[in-house]
Computed example of a mutant assay.
Amino acid sequence: MTIKEITKGYQDEVSFQKKMLQNLQYWLQFFLTIGAIGFVLGYYFYQKTTWLFIIGTIMTGIGVIGALIIAYGRHRGKQNVKLIIADYQKKIATLKNK
C-alpha cells in the first residue's frame, strides 16, 4: 500500500467516527430532554396527581441513565478517534523511514 492509500483509508475512518460521535450527541440531547420533561412533571405534579408524578419520576430516571450511558459512549469514541490518529501518525512515520 502506498502512503496515499493509507491516508485515504484513515481519513475515511476518522470522518465516519466523527459522524457517529455526532449521532451520539443527538441521542444525548434526546435523553437530556426526556429527563428534563420528567423532572418538570415530577416537580409540578408532586402531591397533586400521583400518576403524573410517577410518570415524571420514571422519565427522569430513564433520561438520566440514558444520558450517562451515551455520555460514556461519546467519551470512549473520542478516545478511539485519538488512538486512530496516533496509529496513523506512527504508520506514516514508519513508512517514511523505510
Rank of each mutant, 00 (worst) to 15 (best):
M1T: 10
T2N: 15
T2Y: 06
I3D: 01
K4I: 14
I6P: 00
I6H: 12
I6G: 02
T7C: 06
G9F: 14
G9S: 15
Y10L: 04
Y10D: 01
Y10A: 02
Y10Q: 03
Q11K: 14
E13M: 15
E13T: 14
V14C: 07
V14A: 07
F16H: 09
Q17H: 07
Q17W: 04
K18I: 08
K19V: 04
K19F: 10
L21W: 03
L21C: 00
Q22W: 06
N23W: 09
N23F: 09
Q25V: 08
Y26Q: 04
L28N: 10
Q29N: 11
F30K: 00
F30N: 00
L32Y: 02
T33H: 01
A36C: 09
A36L: 15
A36T: 11
I37W: 04
F39A: 12
V40I: 15
V40A: 14
Y43A: 14
Y43T: 13
Y43L: 13
Y43P: 00
Y46L: 10
Y46D: 13
Q47Y: 08
K48H: 08
K48W: 09
L52T: 08
F53T: 06
F53P: 00
I54C: 00
I55P: 13
G56T: 03
G56V: 03
I58N: 03
I58R: 05
I58A: 12
G61A: 12
I62N: 02
I62A: 07
G63V: 02
G63M: 02
I65A: 15
I65Y: 02
A67R: 06
A67M: 06
I69N: 06
I70L: 07
Y72R: 07
G73T: 10
G73H: 07
R76I: 12
G77D: 03
G77Y: 03
K78L: 10
K78M: 11
Q79S: 11
N80S: 12
N80Q: 11
K82A: 15
L83Q: 14
I84T: 10
I84C: 01
A86N: 08
Q89D: 15
K90L: 13
K90F: 10
K91L: 15
K91E: 13
I92T: 08
A93P: 00
A93M: 10
T94F: 12
K98H: 14
K98P: 15
K98R: 13
K98G: 06
